[in-house]
Design a protein around this nucleic acid. Sequence first.
DNA 1: ATCGAATGTGGCATCGATGCCACATTCGCC
DNA 2: GGCGAATGTGGCATCGATGCCACATTCGAT
Lengths: 351, 351
Amino acid sequence: MNPRGQQAGSPRPGAAVKRPTVQDVAREAGVSPSTVSRALHTRGYASPEVRDRVRAAADKIGYVLDHNARNLRSRTSTSIGVLISDLRNPFYADLAAGIEEELRAAEYQMVLVNDNGDPEEEMRAAETLLAMRVPGVIVTPVTAACPRILQDNGVHVVCADRELGRSGSDVVLSDNKAGARELTEHLIGLGHTRIGLLIDETKWSTGAGRLAGFRAAHADHGLEVDENLIAFTSFDADAAQQTTRRLLNEQHVTAIISANNVLAQGALAEIKDRRLKIPRQLSLAAYDDVPWMSLVQPALTTVDQHTVDLGRAGARLLLSRIRGELPARRRIVRVAPRMIVRGSTGPAPTA
Amino acid sequence: MNPRGQQAGSPRPGAAVKRPTVQDVAREAGVSPSTVSRALHTRGYASPEVRDRVRAAADKIGYVLDHNARNLRSRTSTSIGVLISDLRNPFYADLAAGIEEELRAAEYQMVLVNDNGDPEEEMRAAETLLAMRVPGVIVTPVTAACPRILQDNGVHVVCADRELGRSGSDVVLSDNKAGARELTEHLIGLGHTRIGLLIDETKWSTGAGRLAGFRAAHADHGLEVDENLIAFTSFDADAAQQTTRRLLNEQHVTAIISANNVLAQGALAEIKDRRLKIPRQLSLAAYDDVPWMSLVQPALTTVDQHTVDLGRAGARLLLSRIRGELPARRRIVRVAPRMIVRGSTGPAPTA
DNA sequence: ATCGAATGTGGCATCGATGCCACATTCGCC
DNA sequence: GGCGAATGTGGCATCGATGCCACATTCGAT
């Protein structure tokens, strides 16, 4: 197509350009508006000949569809809401990138909202998306109220990365338990018995799963978990550094697992400050592989969640749901994580 | 507000819930639809008393505005298009995050599209945004055609991060020349005279500015630039690693400046492979500070572009433009970068 | 030749909110 | 007390595309 291709007089922008409508195209092509609509958008009949004629006419006068009019009439929209906590965190950025890729391929648009992990912002965003009449939303929920209000208003919801209560909505998850278990096992295999776990929350399935995996690996090897080694912190790098400091000061640990990429920054900062030799003096591993982890020296052993795939899977799931291709029952998609062993983990120091 | 707050019967999602309209609110509040519109959305008169009554009624029956209908009628929209190359690159993610923050505060929505640096995708996206009747777009343009077609259709455009031809659109830029000059000067001050510049493009103002700054710093110090030290590569980390390898093999350099964060990954990877001691054997500096650069050992000396601020500034600029608060003349906003000296740069080795 | 189905196109109402104007009321002021 | 202005509300048309149905045409089969 070629919106206003030729006589581009560059009206000063914002000067409410009068755009051609289906009526104009109809006149130009010598058919009715209804036919134009059918011819351009492949629903309903239109002879190939007419199709071409209409397309040519549309092209000629620079016709561009009006989504608002279409959405209003057909009571649907091709905009999908994506509600995440923090675009600056590579995890969410990758998730959004995967979603966007899939949506774009299906000719949907992504309306992206950051809620900063704040329930109020999240609710506000949900209302906005409701007002936009989006057919679906992908959300990393802060509160169960958000998916609920959306669903109550007929919007399809896919929760990504975490499960919140029994919302009944579709979910895409990383298999957190399996990933954490594998990572923990890897360390146990290297002879570590005192492994610290740096973690920020366990009320969502994300943290809960990782903690469960940590415990399961211990159990598998007949090891008891010293509860003092589970170090709770808040979700930011500075706090994680403090907590790491406390952990190193107060407990004898030979390895640390950080439950996500942000906490890993804090742990690594503290290790740098103390000039600890990795992995000789301490092994460090992290859940959620992000690019910097392979750039540091030594590179970090991690669990790659395939975050982009997670996003893609979420988008695909949502689209199938919207198209009515799925049975009523909620669907849970699990994306298998993959451990990547790098240089930051090694044999436990022989004390 | 409280969309369908009470009798939430959770109709299965997607089941085209019949939502209340202004008509319904009007009936409930005992006023006319026109009055409801005025009362809810603060334009035009409505007595405080009526306002409250209407609000209460809307709340009671769970009324949610329909953006599509509003947009159609009023021929505007509160969705803003944001067109970037790659959300997974922290530069673009930060830019988008800054934009989103500012838009959200102004009650606008962000429609985010990745164009992968592909002119065709970019054009497709532009058409979609046109179809959505967005009042403005923020774009890191690949092609001048994209801003132009948008402007020709009455859409306000702000170009971010780079200037493309004389499009006449508003721009927000990092002061690339100043930043690169400062960084180069820093190295020259440390005694380096053979500084390699790893750069991917100079046809956009971004690369061109950085190259100009590199040259300017040399000129300031009466040094001639050996053109062989300007190493062109393509925009990905692997290519940058190859190029770095070539640069190190073929030229005698004591310092390398990478023109952006992606190229820096490649340079660092090569340096790691060679086990070069930084900064003793080689100094490394990068334009565009991203989080991993302070996590590696030693941390990288960089130029922080204040990318989030750049995004915020772009969004503010666009919104003022949309509101008609700006004179017709195009505006260029420059965000001053800031050099951050860390451990990766040191005195030139005394050969 | 006639009828019925298939095929393709046009007419018209409609989605929901709002811009614009007319009108009813109240109030102030001479 | 009367008149004009100020104030607040309702009526109606409208934005642009499309769903639905009716209808015109063509074609094949008996």
